[in-house]
Amino acid sequence: MLRKLLKYDMRAIWRIWWLLGLSAMGLSVVGGLALRILNNSGEQAFPAILEVFAGLAVFACIMGFVAFFIGSELLVYYRFYKNLFTDEGYLTFTLPASRAKILASKTLNACLWLVLSVLTLGACLIIMLAISGSLADFPTFLKFFFDGADVFSLLYILLLAVEGIIILLAGSWVSVGLVHFCITIGAVLAKKYKLLAAIGIYYLLNMVLSFVLQAFMILGVFATAGAIEPLFSALSETEIMFFIPLLLALIAVIVTSVALLIHYLILGKLERRLNLA
């Protein structure tokens, strides 16, 4: 059932997303050409007015990429809202699927599109840099980077990369979960202006979270002042090499736990408090 739910969720987003993705790719070509003009500006190969336009085009491209990312996110969150908390909920919640599966499908869908949007942006940047000629030295850099590496170093880098990816995925889950949580609370609390309530709750929650995180960071800096450096100097190079993956693993566990907590909070609201009018 989860597979079917996910299929329809992904298909619904794809209907519009492919246009956004294609536009972003188109922009990257324009941006690449503009960057090429700017890269050659010192050689007076192009008239000054063209360079001004090229600068503006690069700026517009970057704004376009931002718009693409925000647009992709809005598409996914709007589907979550519309599918669960408007009249479409009459269909969603009467399907032979538990609310846990429905939420899992929405969360997976949102995370997949978030990752896909980031990958598309990455591809856009590579296209842009490749067209502008800025990637010419990249193969030399890679050769330099990997030539001196032994098997152990490569495995170590691979471990760090895997941990980094896990943290990124769990982080995406947290960010998706937070938005879903705010939409759910908005829909449960407000009868009329559900979206407005969700936006208000999101801003409030972000404010509180950033305040708490900053407070923790400041307290952390004061509490550990003077303790970090001696700790690291007491450790040997090998010990530090073991310490970094351990630290990353700990971060991955914390982020995943936060994501799970948010997920179950949303599910609790959907299972016990959701009443479509």
């Binding site: 619904a12 009249d87 479409e88 909920g89 009459y90 269909l91 009467t94 032979p96 538990s98 599966k101």
Partner: peptide
Amino acid sequence: QGEATNALVSYLPERPYFDPR
């Protein structure tokens, strides 16, 4: 009432509930 019984019940609400697209 739950996931299994939703497969046995066919429900027609009083309002349009399908994605218009």
